[in-house]
Every structure is written in C-alpha cells, then in structure tokens.
Design a protein around this nucleic acid. Sequence first.
DNA 1: CGCTTAATTGAGAGCCTTCAATCATCGTGG
DNA 2: CCACGATGATTGAAGGCTCTCAATTAAGCG
Lengths: 252, 252
Amino acid sequence: MNAATPFDQFTRSAFGIEPGGTIGARLKAMATQAALPKGQSAPSDRTTDQVVFLASGATKLSAHASLEREQIVAFHFGGDITAIPSDSIYAYELTALVDSELLLFPAREFFDLAASDASISRSLLGRLTAALYRSRDKAVALGQKSASERLAGFLLGMSERVGKPHRGGCLLDLPMSRRDIGDSLGLTIETVSRQISHLREAGLVETQGRSHVRLLDLEALMAMAGHAQPAKNSTDNDSNLISINARLATSG
Amino acid sequence: MNAATPFDQFTRSAFGIEPGGTIGARLKAMATQAALPKGQSAPSDRTTDQVVFLASGATKLSAHASLEREQIVAFHFGGDITAIPSDSIYAYELTALVDSELLLFPAREFFDLAASDASISRSLLGRLTAALYRSRDKAVALGQKSASERLAGFLLGMSERVGKPHRGGCLLDLPMSRRDIGDSLGLTIETVSRQISHLREAGLVETQGRSHVRLLDLEALMAMAGHAQPAKNSTDNDSNLISINARLATSG
DNA sequence: CGCTTAATTGAGAGCCTTCAATCATCGTGG
DNA sequence: CCACGATGATTGAAGGCTCTCAATTAAGCG
C-alpha cells in the first residue's frame, strides 16, 4: 500500500488522521474498495446502509420512484462522502458517471467507530450537515422553481464544483448526460435541451459537443436562477458574488 | 431546574447523557431556551448556523425562494433535532405551528463539543443521516410525483409521526394549514384541497373540521403514493406494511 | 466513413396554476 | 348560547408550462 491509495487519501484528506493508527486500521478492516467503470452501479446492499467515499471520478445517487421514473438526489466528485440508504421506500443506487474509485463502509459500524474519534466525528457532522443543506436547496428548486430557474441553478452549482475560470466566465466539462440533468432537475431531456438552447440564444452560454459548456454571464445566470438575495437597498449586487462561492463542494 | 425542563429532556432522551455532567454543563452554557407562540418564528441568526432541539410542539422549516414562493423543507415534532443554515442562497426560517418550546445552539460550537463525546456523536450522526434520507425522499416526491401521489405520501408520512390507530385506520390531527401542506408539497392550496376532496370521494379518507383527517385505507393510500415496492412475484403486498413503519420520526 | 446513440426541434395534450366566487370553520362578542 | 365576522377552505373555469409523441440533426466511436 503506497502513499496514494484511496484509503490513505480517505483518512488523510477527509478526516485529517493517519491511516496507520488504531482507528485507521479498524476503518480499513471494514472498508471495501471498488473500481467502478463508467455506467456501472455500486454493489447495493438491501440490508445495510452504506457510507461511501469517492476517491476519484464522478457519480450520481439516484432514487427509483418507479420504473421509468428516476430522481437523481446528488452528484458526487472526488473527495466527497455520501450515504446510501437500504430501507427507503425508494430503491437508491450509486452509479459511476466516469470511471471511479470508491470505498464502501457498512454505515452502522462506520458511525459506531467514527463516533469514538473526535476528529472524524467533527468532520462527518460538518459534511452531513452540508449534505443536508444541499438536499434541502434541491428540494426548494424542485418544489418552487421553473425549468429555466432550475437549469440556471444547476449550471451555477456545477460551476462551483467542476468549473474552471475562463476569461471572466466559467468553463464546464459536464460528466453527465442530458438525461442525468433532467433526472436531477425533475425535467425531461427535451425540456433541458430547450432551456439550454434558450440560454445559448440569449448569449448566456456557449456549448461545444455534448459535455462542454461555457458560462458567459454568471451574474445573469444568478439572476435567472433566483439566487440573488433580495437587494436591501438599490443596486447592492456585490454580495451575490460572495455568497455563491461560500459553500464547499460536499456530498448531498 | 426540575426534572422536566426542556434541557433535561434534551440531554436524556436525545443523547442518553445526564444533564449534570461536564458535557451537560457546557451544552447548557451555550443553549438558548425559547418559547415560541403559534405562528412566530425562531430568532434567526444570519451569521451562524443554528442547531435546534424541539422540546415540545410542532414547527415548520421553510425556505423563501422569493417573495410569494415558500418551500417547507421539513416539519418537526417534539424530540426532533434540526439545523438551520445561515448562509444559504435562500432565507430559511423556523416557525411554530403550535405553541412550542425549543433550545437553540450555535451550530459550530455545538458540533465542536458534540464531537468530543462518543454518545452524542453517535446519536447526531444517526439523526443527521435520517434527516438527509428524509430530505432526499422529499426531493424524489417533488421531482417525480404527481399531486395525488404527493398528498397520499404526505398523509402516510404524517400518520407515522402523529397518527393514532383508529379502527384499522389512522386518525390525524394536523397542526398545519392547507397552505403549509401545499408549501411542503410544491403545490397550491387549491390543488391540495382538490386532491383531498378526491380522496374523500374515493372513500380513502374522512375529514372533520380543518385539521382532523381519518385515513380509512392505508394500503390504498400506499399504492396511490407509489410507496409500494415493486412486487417480486404476484400478490406479495405484506412487506409494504412493515417498511412503512421502519423509519423513526426525526428531523429533516 | 458509416452506424449507433444522444441531443435538438416541433406540435399537441395534460396537469397544475391562476383567477374568481362561494362555502365552511372557528374565535369573538353580544 | 347563538349570531357574527374574518380567515381558511372548497369548487369552478380558463390559461400556461412542461410533458409526450414524433421527426430530424448532431456527436462520438468503431
């Protein structure tokens, strides 16, 4: 086991502890390492919740409301931690959007052990809270927002997580399909496609191929997404630029 | 401080620790106790996330997507713990549905202290995970389900939390208005009202006054909600009755 | 270079919303 | 105890946004 294994990355970057310690050894004993090729789903356990550390790649966590109806509740990227329920009213499934490496833990044992270490507990409490907040924000979008608002919000959210600054705008290389975007936003692929076309016609974005999107006007997108805080006075728009970058990318 | 104070209830029932200990004293030092009359909102802190323990009563946690657009992300009842974000893109607000008693903690300090105690950590990890699962399930409903499915799911969810068994059915005394239900389900009050009328006409529920609802056919409601697991064989419906009661009521 | 899959674009239908009016509920005051 | 008023809930009709169905175009891969 060299210094760059997923497990070392897990203990060090996620929790700030050394993999060689007592806790590290016990964590390792209950971990299952998996290399998920693109499109493949994590081995699901119908009897035990699972905690997942995504070492590298990108995944989607989706719930099957019925055959033909899938809701993606979260996207994950390298370094993210998430939890997969086993006894929900829906069947949840973690699927790789690109080739990915991940560590799987049985949730109950993992939390039992984590609770005994202050550093790990503190990290998990923060991450779970962030994931909860993110999930709530998604619920707000799904419950209250129009298709154009949702798509603008989605692009801005992705820009925070995988965007690269590019001449005052932002360059995205989206790992998910239009269907995935639709399943995440509660829209059909046709509606997603139409909304992207509208954004393109409005000069707010440029697209190249299936996955490359360039956000040309972040401020206009924020206004369109309804992310702008109600201006306290007249033209007090500066605060938006700050708040939009405030939250770190974490599973949710 | 007698044995029935909200704080004693908090440490004992929520975490299984004695309020008199060192941790208990430090928790108490950072706690703010509040009695919220019906309709009133908790004092919001725009700079610090808050952890809330609801000792008694019922509350809603809502996000303001804009003026006139409110999404309720969670209902809470006595014994629940939740967290209110301060720096979200939406303004979150905790409002009492009935006269309520609650304890407020600054989230960062609270989690810092909680992490140092294995018992508290374990409890919080479980509660936060449950809240995350519940929020995800709500996202699924908001993203994929029709009005009738959402309302049936709402009634079943409430039956688990505040329902009283009644002659093979379930008796509900809902503390929230039709507007609250609509804001929770991403529907208008008119649509909620129409769907309730449909359920009544179908003989699945009876209503009495504004808040009393009697669920007459839980199985039919489950089928309508789309909560039924895909039957593995022919008429294997017994498992639904078990799974519907599997999750404990927790904030989220 | 051709094929398979994904994405785009268009037309029509459906579900929920909006707008409007009526009815019921419940707290209050006589 | 009942009448009254205010708020909440119900019901109806019309419109809008997204979905469904269908066809075309583009992208990516062998």
